[in-house]
Design a protein around this nucleic acid. Structure first.
Length: 462
RNA sequence: GUCCCUAUCGUCUAGUUCGGCCUAGGACACCGGCCUUUCAAGCCGGCGACUCGGGUUCAAAUCCCGAUGGGGACGCCA
């Protein structure tokens, strides 16, 4: 059975790149009827924070990615790593290194200056004898020669010369394990069959493979997916806008849209653009993943979000929109809310924007946009509004046909165009020059509110 | 500096495995038109790319080599 994992470190928010890696792992596992494991790599105790772990968990849940096993925390598994590190030491695959941080820093600087690669010079590799009073780290004995090659599931053959690799620290002075070691131990012990991760890990792969071999573990398959870049073609970071997954939630994006977008970043299935979660599981596979980095394109995400706002069931949109309405200080009548959404679908690209647009449907007082008032709430418009108000009071029904007849009659009587009558009304009711269809607005607002707002608009002209 | 990865419209990509069906397809964005009570949406149309140079071949976006561009990695971070 295929087993994949997502192994973030809780040293920051779950960002778009991480989320996509998680998504690919999850889709790959689901596609092959396998299992998806979540593991939190919190071996850096300085920088790991519980709030980030929570953020990662919440983010994945929001996106709709559910892990089958875990979350496992590396901080609870330290004995395991120590045990295997000691085993390597015993079997001659690792050694104690007494070099101090300062010495190493010095050596590196010198090497770089002389145009050499800044890797560890293996001073302690062949030293014999203990130095009981000195602190030490345990380093892995990387083979000195030969090549390490592997078949990458998205890139094909990749090989490295062993002399490019240096002897990595696997246990720190304080006996805590380091990343390249824990990842090997855990992936092996957890039975991970396919490691799908960002291509920034390609360089780590040969180092890890030699450890798998020394530990006599089965080497898993690797697939390195390209990183996501910002507009400047550099790795995505804070300055590229919303980078935490949950920020997209707060900004009014739908998880359906984000999942669809993320999946299409670096992966394609012919010319298809729209994929439900089920379709993604059915169609996703590693051979279709591209090799070059993709640039995050907000416009396309917005387009997809817009698409899902229009196509998901209104009830679902209502449920998702409610918190945004609440954030603006309003509560919506469920029936009315559905009506409002139907009129705003196709106009708003995000839930946040939709709530903003829906604002005038709520509350008693509305504010006029100054440009709108200046242009349409004019002395010239006053008689039209008065006439409308007068006739509207007598209107027996708010259905579109009755309303249309009324507005058209006024238009004809004044020798105007439809737009000349409707715009002042629109501003009177919404405060803005742009709104959903005016008859729909009137219907949603209801007779009383319409009358009061027209009265107020007339009074405002004065 | 060294190593590794990568290269089709502005962006995401199809096509590359098995060279001809590619005068390179789709989508986003952009521009124009239609529709129209505003704004959107929708519909129709337009702009727009095989990084470059050598090969191989009757034929190359597709295969080979090189250059260049871009990215990543070189931590007692993950």
């Amino acid at each position: 059975m295929i087993r994949t994992r997502f192994a973030p470190s809780p040293t920051g928010q779950l960002h778009i790149g991480g989320a996509r890696t998680a998504l690919f792992n999850w889709l790959f596992a689901k596609h092959h009827k396998g299992s998806f494991v979540l593991r939190i790599e919190d071996t850096d105790r300085e920088r790991s924070r519980d709030e980030y772990t929570r953020g990662i968990l919440d983010g994945l849940a929001w996106l709709g990615i559910a892990h089958d096993e875990g979350p496992f925390f590396q901080s609870t598994r330290t004995e395991l790593y120590t045990e295997h590190a000691l085993r390597l030491l015993r079997e001659g695959h690792a050694y104690k290194c007494y070099c101090s941080v300062e010495e190493l820093e010095e050596k590196k600087k010198r090497a770089l200056k002389e145009g050499q690669k800044p890797s560890y010079d293996r001073t302690c590799r062949d030293k014999t004898g203990e130095q009981p009073d000195k602190p030490y780290v345990i380093r892995f004995k990387t083979p000195l020669s030969g090549t390490v090659a592997f078949h990458d599931l998205v890139r094909g053959e990749i090989s490295f010369q062993c002399d490019e690799l240096d002897d990595l620290i696997i246990l720190r002075t304080d006996r805590t394990p380091t990343y390249n070691f824990t990842v090997v131990v855990d992936d092996a012990l957890m039975g991970i069959t396919h490691i799908i991760r960002g291509d920034d890990h390609i360089n780590n792969t040969p180092r890890q493979i030699v450890m798998y071999e020394a530990l006599k573990f089965t080497v898993p398959r690797f697939g390195h997916v390209p990183l996501i870049h910002g507009k400047d073609r550099a790795r995505l970071s804070k300055r590229h806008g919303a980078t935490s997954l949950l920020e997209y939630s707060d900004d009014g994006f739908l998880p359906e849209a984000l999942m669809n977008y993320l999946a299409r970043l670096g992966w394609a299935h012919g010319d298809d653009e729209i994929f439900s979660k089920e379709e993604l599981i059915e169609k996703f596979d590693l051979p279709n993943v591209g090799k070059s980095p993709a640039i995050f394109d907000m416009d396309k995400l917005l387009w997809l979000n817009d698409h899902y706002i229009k196509s998901l069931p209104v009830e679902l949109i209502a449920e998702r929109l409610t918190p945004f309405i609440a954030a603006l200080g309003h509560t919506a009548d469920p029936v009315k809310l559905i009506q409002i959404i139907r009129n705003l679908q196709g106009r708003a690209k995000t839930l946040k924007e939709m709530a903003q647009m829906a604002r005038f449907f709520f509350g008693e007082e509305i504010e006029y946009e100054s440009a709108a008032k200046a242009k349409f709430l004019t002395p010239a418009a006053r008689p039209i509004l008065e006439r409308f108000l007068n006739d509207f009071r007598e209107l027996p029904s708010l259905d579109e046909a009755s309303q249309r007849l009324l507005v058209e009659t006024i238009t004809k009587d004044y020798g105007k165009k439809l737009v000349d009558v409707i715009q002042p009304i629109r501003v009177a009711l919404s405060g803005k020059v742009a709104s959903p269809g005016i008859f729909e607005v009137i219907d949603i607002l209801g007779k009383d509110v319409v009358e009061r707002r027209i009265e107020r608009a007339i009074a405002s002209i004065a």
